[in-house]
Design a protein around this nucleic acid. Sequence first.
DNA 1: AAAAACTGTGTCTCGCGGACACTGTTCGTT
DNA 2: AACGAACAGTGTCCGCGAGACACAGTTTTT
Lengths: 237, 237
Amino acid sequence: MMAEAANDTVRLLWGPPAKPTRGPKPALSLERIAAAGVEIADAEGLGAVSMQKVAGLLDFTKMSLYRYVPGKAELIALMVESAVDAPSDAPEGAGWREQLTVWAHHLADSFARHPWLLDATVGARAIGPRELAWLERVVAALDGHGLNGPERMDAAVLLTGHVRGIATQSRAAGPDHNPEAELLAALGAVVQEHADRFPAVAAAMADPGGRDQALEFGLERILDGLAALIERRANTD
Amino acid sequence: MMAEAANDTVRLLWGPPAKPTRGPKPALSLERIAAAGVEIADAEGLGAVSMQKVAGLLDFTKMSLYRYVPGKAELIALMVESAVDAPSDAPEGAGWREQLTVWAHHLADSFARHPWLLDATVGARAIGPRELAWLERVVAALDGHGLNGPERMDAAVLLTGHVRGIATQSRAAGPDHNPEAELLAALGAVVQEHADRFPAVAAAMADPGGRDQALEFGLERILDGLAALIERRANTD
DNA sequence: AAAAACTGTGTCTCGCGGACACTGTTCGTT
DNA sequence: AACGAACAGTGTCCGCGAGACACAGTTTTT
C-alpha cells in the first residue's frame, strides 16, 4: 500500500532507533551528518549542500554517506528535522489567540535563523516528528472552539502559509546587501518607471506608512477572521 | 547602483523590444524558447527543464540558447512570465471583497494549470510585468479603504501566501497516484501510529468534516479579517 | 571588396548524484 | 580458536547538468 521511497524516508525520520550490528561500528551518525549539512546550508545556502561538501566537512568520502542515507532528498529531510526547533510551550492558560501568536513568531524565527528552510520545505516531502509537532500545536490550540477537523487543518495551512510568505519576503530584503536585495531594488526602480501601468503598486510603495510589520499585519487579520468564525459558531450552537 | 545579474534579468523581462541588427537574423525568439520550457515543465515538472531538453525540443543545440538568454535562471523567469495568465478583469462595480475572491480563485487556477510555478517562484527573483499585474490588482482593489501603502502590500502578500499554500497542498494530494500522494498516505499512517504524541492532528485527520474547501476557508478568514480592519478604520476616521 | 557584428555549433571543463566492485573490520556461529 | 557472514568506508566509473570558449558561416555596414 505504501511506496518504496516514501517508506524509506519515513523510517529514517521516525523509527531508526537501532539496527542489528555485526560489522565494524559506524563512525558517523545521522545526527552528525545532518548537522554538517545544516552548517553548510546556513553558511552558503541550500544550493551549496552536496554530498561531497557534507562528507568533506566530516572528513569522509562522499560515498560513505550513502551507508547512512539513501540519497540527497533524505539528507535534506534530516537537515530540516535537525534545524527546526521544537515548538515552544504555550504560556499556561493562554487562549487560542495568544498561543497562535506565539507560535507564529516562533516559526518565523526558525525561518529567519535558517533561511534555506524555505527552499527545503517546498513541494511534497516526508514530514518528521519535529515538524509535525508544529502542526499539532496549531490544531490543538483550536480544539474545542467549534471548528471541525478539516477546518482546523485548514487554519494551520493558512497560518503556515502566511509565515512562509513573510519569511520569503523578508529574506529578499535581507540584512546585508545580498544579491537578492538587488532584485528588490530593481523592482522598485521598474515600478517607478512604469508607474502609469501599475499606479496602485507605485503609490503603495511610495507611501512610507511607517512600519515593517508584515508578519503582524497578516497574523492579526487571520486571527480576527478566525475569531469571527469561532464567535459565529458559538452563537449558533 | 543596480547590480549586473539583476539588471540583465530585468532588461530581459521588461524592455527587450529590439536591438541593432547586423549579422544573420535570429532563428529563435524568447517567446518560442519560453514556450518550449513551459511545455517541458508542464509535462515533466520543473526539474526536467534543462538547456539540453529545451534546445532539443526546438531542434537547436543547447549553446544556441545562450545567444538569447544569459542563463537558466533567466530562462525560468521567462517561463514564469509566459505561463502566468493576465489577471482577469474584475466584474464591473464589484466591491473589494468580490474582486479579491475572483482574484484568488484565478490565481489558484494558474497554479493548478502549471504546478511547477510553485517551484519556479520560490526565493528571490526578478518579477515580470504579467506577475506584477497580479500584485497591482490586489493593491488597487484595496485602494481607498483606509489602509496605508505598506498595509495594502502586506495584504497582497497575505493573500498570495495563502493561495500558494493551498496550491502546494493540493498538488501533493494530486489527481493521479503520483509519488507525492504516497507521502501523504505515509503521513496519515504515521500520525495514526503515533496518535498519542499528536492527538489533535490525529483527531483532526480522522474527522471527516465533509469538505475540501481549504482555499475558501482561508480566503474567507482573511477577507473577514480585512473587513474588520476596514470597518474599524472607517469608524475612527 | 573588406571588415565588423552577429548567429549557431562543437568541444571542453567542472561539479553533481549515484551505481558498483572492492578492501578491511568485527561479530556470531561452530 | 577459526571461519564466514554482515557490515563500514573507499575508489572508480557513468550520465547529466550548466556554462566557457573558440570557431565557422552569414549578413550588414563602410
